[in-house]
């Protein structure tokens, strides 16, 4: 019994079951699926949605937009991180952009971007815009926090520039990069789906969430939200596992 209680899977399952029970109890107390559908009703709605082609098409297109925005954001943010860490002038010049993107409300950006891009491209661009400063900040911090003593050691032992990059800088930056990826992925999902709610592309999970709310289909609204959470969680696990292979010492 003690071993079972110590088991990580058991604890996680117990916590999940606990929250499901709390949700079920709240649904019973409210007594209306329109206001608060129970976990069972939500699961039934999700299963029903899974039987439609539109569901899978919406999931695939949202995934494509979010993932593309995420990858572009990570690439651009990392490049800017390297540039601003290497050059104080570049940091002075470019840091206002980072501050503005971080501080401005996401809805303002979505509405603004809709003036220039199609409703299908806007969610991707918004995901990119939200991820980019996270990668930028983390990669720059990783470079700047690289142990100066190790850099001196590399210099004294005659490491070439490429070797210093590979054996000192890259491993120092990698934990920061992994943090940027995990945090950025969450932001990419939230911002990408929010952009779909506002932009209304032909197909998309955000659009489906909005329409469920519009037609008072609360179980479907919950089912779509659950689908977003499941996909976000699965993608985060996949990316964390891939990055873990790059940094086995962590």
């Amino acid at each position: 019994m003690k071993r079972l209680l110590k088991s990580r899977i058991f604890r996680k399952t117990a916590v999940f079951a606990c929250w499901m029970l709390a949700w079920q109890a709240a649904a019973w107390a409210v007594g209306s699926d329109l206001l608060l559908p129970s976990p069972f009703v939500t699961a039934r709605a999700l299963v029903s949605l899974c039987g439609t082609g539109a569901f899978w098409l919406s999931c695939a297109l949202t995934l494509l937009r979010v993932f593309t925005g995420f990858i572009l954001g990570i690439l651009a943010g990392s490049a800017l991180g390297v540039l601003t860490a290497a050059s104080p002038i570049a940091e002075e010049l470019l840091s206002p952009i980072r501050s503005i993107v971080k501080a401005a409300p996401i809805t303002s950006f979505i509405i603004l971007v809709l003036l220039y891009l199609s409703s299908a491209l806007t969610p991707m661009f918004i995901a990119f815009l939200m991820v980019m400063p996270i990668a930028w900040t983390n990669v720059a911090a990783g470079i700047l926090s690289t142990d100066k003593q190790l850099l001196e050691m590399a210099r004294v032992f005659g490491f070439s520039r490429a070797k210093t990059l590979k054996t000192v800088y890259a491993p120092s930056v990698l934990p920061h990069f992994v943090s940027a990826c995990t945090a950025g992925l969450g932001f990419a999902w939230k911002s990408g789906v929010t952009a779909e709610v506002i932009a209304h592309p032909a197909f998309g999970m955000g659009k489906a969430i909005y329409e469920s709310k519009l037609y008072l289909e609360t179980p479907e609204l919950f089912a779509w939200t659950a689908a977003v959470i499941i996909m976000s969680f699965a993608l985060e696990k996949l990316i964390t596992a891939l990055l873990g292979r790059l940094a086995p010492w962590n």
Binding site: L150, E152, M153, F157, G158, K163, T167, V168, P171, W249
Partner: peptide, 24 residues
């Protein structure tokens, strides 16, 4: 080219002991 043992060990924490030696 001088060789050195610094006051601090300055080992690369992500590499094994052997790799730390092998790298130089």
């Amino acid at each position: 080219r001088p060789s050195v043992v610094f006051q601090e060990d300055r080992l690369l924490s992500w590499f094994t002991a052997e790799r730390n030696v092998e790298e130089v």
